[in-house]
C-alpha cells in the first residue's frame, strides 16, 4: 500500500521465532487427542447447549443409585431399584442417546472440515488417531457405565455401621462392576465411532447411531414374545442385550424381562457375539481411516 511517504522498506522483528525445544512426540500427540476427545465427549469448552445431553444422561444414569442410597440411609433397607447385575440394563436407554450425540462430536468434523491432514502431519499414525478417539469415548462412557455402580457400591458400604465388614461383604462385586463397566464402555464406543466415521455430517451420524439401537431394541422386543426360535434370536439384534448376555456369562446373575432371560441359548454365544461386534466395528474404523485420502 502506498500510503507511507517513506520509500525505504523495513521488516520489523516482532518476536516470531521457530520452536527448537524438546517435543512431546507420538505419546504426547495421542495423549492430546484423548484429552481433547474427552473434553468433546462432555461438551467442555463448548456452548451450554452441547452440555445438555452428556451431562443430562450422566445425571440420569446415577439417579437410581442416588435414590437407592438415599432411601437406604433415610428409611433403611427398603428400596432396591437396581442391583449390580441389572443396573446397566435398567439404564440402557441412556447409552444410545449419549453415544449418538457425542460420538459424532469426536470424529465427524475432523473429516468434514478436512483437518485430518493436520493430525497426520504429526508423528501419529492413522491407527493411533482411531485408538485415541476410542479411548477418549470409552473413558467418557465410564461416567455412565461405571460411576453409578461405584456410587452404589460406596453407598452400600458407607450406610453400614460396620464399614470394614461391609467392605468385606461387597468387595466380591468389584470385579464384575469394573469388568462389566469397561466392557460396556468399549463396545458402545466402538459401535458408535464406527458408524459416525462413515457419516459426512454430525446430524446424520447421530441419526444412524440412534437408528441402529432403536431398530435393534424394537425388533428384538417384538421377537422376544413370538415363541422359542424367535426369542432365541431376539437378543442378538440388540447390542445392549448382547452385552447383558456377555455380562451374565462372565459374572453371572440373570436379568428379568431382558431378552436374554427369555432366550434359551448357551451363554458363551453372547461372548462370541460381543467379539464379533467389536471386530466389525474396529474393521470398519481401520478400513475407513486407512483408505481415507486426506
Amino acid at each position: 500500500m502506498g500510503a507511507s511517504p517513506d520509500l525505504t522498506g523495513t521488516i520489523y522483528d516482532i518476536g516470531y521465532q521457530g520452536y527448537t525445544g524438546p517435543r512431546l512426540g507420538r505419546r504426547g500427540a495421542i495423549g492430546a487427542i484423548v484429552g481433547s476427545g474427552l473434553r468433546a465427549t462432555f461438551g467442555l469448552g463448548r456452548s451450554g447447549r452441547s452440555k445438555v445431553i452428556p451431562w443430562g444422561t450422566v445425571v440420569l444414569a446415577a439417579l437410581p443409585a442416588g435414590v437407592a442410597i438415599g432411601v437406604r440411609v433415610l428409611v433403611g433397607d427398603l428400596l432396591e431399584l437396581y442391583s449390580y447385575d441389572n443396573y446397566l440394563w435398567g439404564i440402557g436407554a441412556l447409552f444410545p442417546i449419549f453415544v449418538a450425540a457425542q460420538a459424532p462430536e469426536l470424529v465427524v468434523n475432523d473429516v468434514r472440515h478436512r483437518v485430518l491432514p493436520l493430525y497426520f502431519s504429526r508423528p501419529i499414525s492413522r491407527i493411533d488417531y482411531v485408538v485415541a478417539k476410542l479411548v477418549a469415548l470409552s473413558l467418557g462412557l465410564l461416567a455412565l457405565t461405571l460411576v453409578p455402580l461405584l456410587l452404589l457400591w460406596l453407598g452400600r458400604i458407607l450406610a453400614e455401621d460396620d464399614v470394614v465388614g461391609a467392605i468385606g461383604d461387597e468387595i466380591g462385586a468389584m470385579p464384575a462392576i469394573l469388568g462389566n463397566g469397561a466392557m460396556h464402555a468399549v463396545v458402545l464406543a466402538s459401535i458408535a465411532l464406527a458408524i459416525s466415521s462413515l457419516a459426512g455430517r454430525r446430524a446424520y451420524a447421530a441419526g444412524a447411531v440412534l437408528a441402529l439401537f432403536l431398530v435393534g431394541s424394537v425388533v428384538s422386543g417384538i421377537l422376544q414374545v413370538q415363541g422359542e426360535s424367535m426369542a432365541n434370536a431376539a437378543p442378538f439384534l440388540n447390542p445392549l442385550a448382547v452385552l447383558d448376555g456377555t455380562r451374565e456369562w462372565l459374572f453371572g446373575g440373570s436379568v428379568a424381562d431382558a431378552p436374554t432371560s427369555v432366550a434359551d441359548v448357551p451363554l458363551p454365544l453372547y461372548g462370541v457375539a460381543t467379539i464379533v461386534i467389536l471386530g466389525l466395528s474396529w474393521a470398519v474404523l481401520a478400513v475407513r481411516y486407512r483408505g481415507m485420502t486426506t
Partner: peptide, 14 residues
Amino acid sequence: GFTGALLGNFGLGV
C-alpha cells in the same frame, strides 16, 4: 400379534 407389533412398533414407531 406379530404383524401388529412389527408394523406398529417398528413401522409407525421407528
